[in-house]
Write a protein that binds this DNA or RNA. Sequence first.
RNA 1: GCGGAAGUAGCUCAGUUGGCAGAGCACCUGGUUGUGGCCCAGGGGGCCGAGAGUUCAAGUCUCUUCUUUCGCCCCA
Length: 417
Amino acid sequence: MAQIQAIKGFADLFPEDSALFLRMEQAAREVFPRYAFGELRTPLLEYTDLFRRSIGTETDVVQKEMYTFADSKERSMTLRPEATAGVMRAYIEHGVHAREAVSKFFTIGPMFRHERPQKGRMRQFHQINCECLGPREAEADAEIICMLMEFLGRLNLGDITLQINSLGCPNCRPAYRKILRDWLESLDPAGLCEDCRRRMETNPLRVLDCKVPTCRENTARAPVMLEHQCPECSAHLDTVLRHLRAQGVSFEINHRLVRGLDYYTRTTFEVVSGSIGAQGSVAGGGRYDGLISSLGGPDVPGIGFACGMERLALLMREDGEHFLSRPDFYLASLDDSCRDAAFELAQILRGAGLGGTLAFETRSMKSAMRQADKSRARFALILGPDELAAGTVAVRNMENGEQRAVSRAEAAGALKA
RNA sequence: GCGGAAGUAGCUCAGUUGGCAGAGCACCUGGUUGUGGCCCAGGGGGCCGAGAGUUCAAGUCUCUUCUUUCGCCCCA
């Protein structure tokens, strides 16, 4: 215990790793604004009540996964376990609905859940989150899904699948819930796992989502949600799917797709990958028409999604590409007398927009070249007594080995050419 | 919260029935005047995750603990 260590489930991202995150953020900031989404940054810390009321007190997230503690005035605070709640709070608190009929926000940042860490799951993890508030129309669903797929498409993720389902609305879901529960109760209980027998009572929809193979077999012919929805919900989903087909966005209907958070209604979707182990869900979202009013805000519907950046990073890494950019130069002095001039030259180059390393110690030629090679710089710049006297610097192209003396005043231009 | 596996050099890992702490890669320095990658030579690097115990002797055996990892659960 002498060594100070990072907290379990909290990771350090070195430049090779953060380069992937940077690339995701850049893709998000390019794609989302074209759909009129603007970035909203909300606090990492909120009053615990916000999450209890939005995510649902019965969920695992609220019951056992939140980082909750009291501040000096004994108020219960929680590190955000997801982004939607904070966005909703900000939306309501600032009366945004009164200013505009449709609000579109994205947010990027860390979330915190006290779970057992494993592949693709950290206690501090990062999400890219989008919320579209205001429209009730199916076009909003189709648009945000198209946007998500366009965003993911920029990331070179390999095989991913978009799955869609509809959970119905408060008018038709209770009836389906009852039909499903009755059907489940007619089964031989021995065919279901312990969890499912419990879920049958508390949350029958979750039984469909069980991963135990025998449960899946035995519920294969369960009543299908989509066949028991009201005409409005059916029409809504049809419109969403029609637009996706027209846009060439491929998807599959997953009758078992049930989301974990209580506030979802109608359209739900998830993007999954088979190649990163058990935590294969890369993005997920859906419509939450009752959430804002249940938090004390106006009766404004919404739809949104979240993607897990650590999981995206796992998929991006597989194409083995270099995400770090190459420096322009590596500049070394061969003698102590040259170091002042080297420092000046490095600053001139940086002032001209070039990037690279200045070797602080005087190095031998061999060592300087080895360092230049290792830095992956495009050019090695060498400053020795000869160059110092002549007002030049030796510029070596590391790709082809071509080398020439260039006046120090013109070095920046030579590197750019 | 529940299971399985693993912690030895910066990284990947050897280490026999308990008996001097190792390799490869990486790093540094050289291989005669100031030139990288390949090759060769040399060098720096270790509380063997931590703490107890057994023993003349523990990297090795026992227990505890921490961490990592793969699953379950849940979720992005």
